[in-house]
Simulated scan of single mutants.
Amino acid sequence: MSSDSNWLERARAQWLWRGERRPPFADAPASGQVSVWDFPRPPELVREAREIVVLWGHLEVARTCAAWAVRETAHPPTFYLPLADVRPGLLQPAGTGSFCEWKGPARYWNLVDGARRLDQVAWSYPHPLHGAEPLAGCVAFYAHNLDCRVGGSKAQPQAGPFYGGWITPDLSGPFKGGPGSGGW
């Protein structure tokens, strides 16, 4: 974080696309799909009605019907699961963090099961910014090395090493994270 008192305002103001209109390159949603370009910025937090399941091979890491979906312009939703619905003893602090201009300071987690380990595969916002308070007590998982399911559908990970959205068949893009999407 910067010592400049206006840094957060400037960080939030940088985004051109805010869900008010779709850019000309946005895919037209098919029947039953939602365009990620209709999601707002700042993001909205929506209670997810579908069951969310996270598997690491045959090990069930988490299962919940009480997740929050964070929906932000150009991103597939990121699902935040209550820590109470994550199998105890699997998450270990990663000792690193980052900062989101919408959600606040993030804490990262490793997934550890005996000799198996996935570093920085999850993150949380223990002290979220105003507007993101429901995320306190929740954790999100990157889908890159896990089998993540939304309502029974296998989710594909959002491109890029930083973004944690899950792409499901009910979404149309294109999705932020791929080459050339940095300014979206």
Rank of each mutant, 00 (worst) to 15 (best):
E20T: 12
G182H: 13
V139S: 06
R149L: 07
A136L: 01
A140F: 09
G164W: 03
P126Q: 05
S3D: 15
D27M: 01
G131V: 02
A69M: 06
F39C: 07
A115I: 02
E101F: 02
S124F: 10
S98A: 07
D38K: 03
G131I: 01
F79W: 13
A136T: 08
W37V: 00
R10W: 03
C100V: 04
R12M: 00
R18N: 11
P134Q: 09
A49V: 11
L111H: 10
L146W: 11
P179R: 10
I52M: 14
F162V: 14
L45R: 11
T168A: 02
D27P: 04
C138E: 00
N6E: 14
P23F: 00
Q92I: 05
Y125H: 12
Q120A: 13
R10I: 01
V46F: 10
R116N: 13
A74Y: 01
E9L: 05
H58E: 15
S172C: 05
L91H: 09
A67L: 01
W17T: 03
A28H: 02
C138S: 11
L90C: 03
G57T: 11
G173K: 04
A143N: 15
P161Q: 13
D27H: 12
D170Q: 12
H75E: 06
R18C: 02
E72T: 09
R10D: 03
W17L: 08
R12H: 04
C148L: 07
V46Y: 11
D27C: 03
P161Y: 09
P169M: 00
S153D: 15
G151V: 06
E60T: 15
Y163K: 11
P126T: 04
P169G: 03
A84T: 11
S5A: 12
G164K: 03
F162Y: 15
R47G: 12
V61E: 11
V121Q: 14
P23T: 06
G182T: 10
H75V: 01
G19S: 05
R50E: 15
W109P: 13
G95C: 06
G19H: 09
A28L: 03
S172L: 00
P23E: 00
F141T: 12
C148S: 08
Q33R: 02
P43V: 04
W102Y: 15
S124D: 09
R21W: 06
G57Q: 06
N110K: 10
R63Q: 12
A30V: 01
A13N: 07
Y142K: 04
Y125W: 08
A11W: 07
F79G: 07
R18D: 13
